[in-house]
Nucleic acid binder design. Sequence first.
DNA 1: TCTATGGCTATAGTGACTATAGCTTTATGG
DNA 2: CCATAAAGCTATAGTCACTATAGCCATAGA
Lengths: 148, 148
Amino acid sequence: MAATGRLERVMPIGALAERTGVKVETIRYYEQVGLLPPPERSEGNQRRYGRRHAERLAFIKHARDLGFAVDAIRTLLRLSDTPGIACDEAHAISVAHLGEVRDKIARLRSLERELERIATTCSGGVAACDCAIIEALADHGQCNHDHH
Amino acid sequence: MAATGRLERVMPIGALAERTGVKVETIRYYEQVGLLPPPERSEGNQRRYGRRHAERLAFIKHARDLGFAVDAIRTLLRLSDTPGIACDEAHAISVAHLGEVRDKIARLRSLERELERIATTCSGGVAACDCAIIEALADHGQCNHDHH
DNA sequence: TCTATGGCTATAGTGACTATAGCTTTATGG
DNA sequence: CCATAAAGCTATAGTCACTATAGCCATAGA
């Protein structure tokens, strides 16, 4: 008895992992650090997940893929559980993160340019070279680039 | 006696740190992991560095600033100690690293675009919003972007 | 000689997982 | 109905490249 609905949506951790693309160990880790609430357990103490967990984990994965820190995600999740005034804070978090991403892009671009310079100075195989790459690394003065 | 030259170039770890912009703790860490050879010690067991160490540390710092992994730097340093055939391998390392940097830039650009979309959908403060940012994170289907 | 500053070692903490060891549970086929 | 293989469990340690702490010792300048 106690009919559980037409479709049994409950699944073990491996199925959730496969469905969301998050590794089993990582799911357990997210539970441990309080991102994912502890699910029900089977008689034999194994985790059993439902649709809600799958959705929450998808949220977490998406945010992590976007580079949000676990701590920021904790806040975003809290906001998503409190639909009222969520917007302002969520907006601030995204904007701050966007700023960080843009910073990182700018820094990587400047590294790209210097690496290009370094890597093309000596194209390898040349006997007379001893070695431009290593010299470039040794002598920062050659580079007009401020790694801050 | 035992004249040490016109100029005493020997310095303690703090001076080396200041000169190179690498923190004291990080210098000791580099020694521990075998990037920087153990220097001479004073009577009282304090590290005393010379020009060679400063140069090697500058090499390490520059390479780290460029995003080379400590392991890659170990190889580059080995190559720079073996001037003969160094070039090919150094070139390969730089080119591989340049590839990684370009990958990272591409991924960050696509994140930038999605974050822009997310952050501008709801500009904050709007009462009717509940909340576009959080919905965007919850529903990956909205995003035409493949985080791989 | 006193003292402020700096240096020493050893150990633990960071973030976000990942891996391992040594068990127990569950699903499936005979 | 039971054996077995696959999957799950906990607890702990390892990863990378540092960073921080505690508690002690050395050095330089007044």
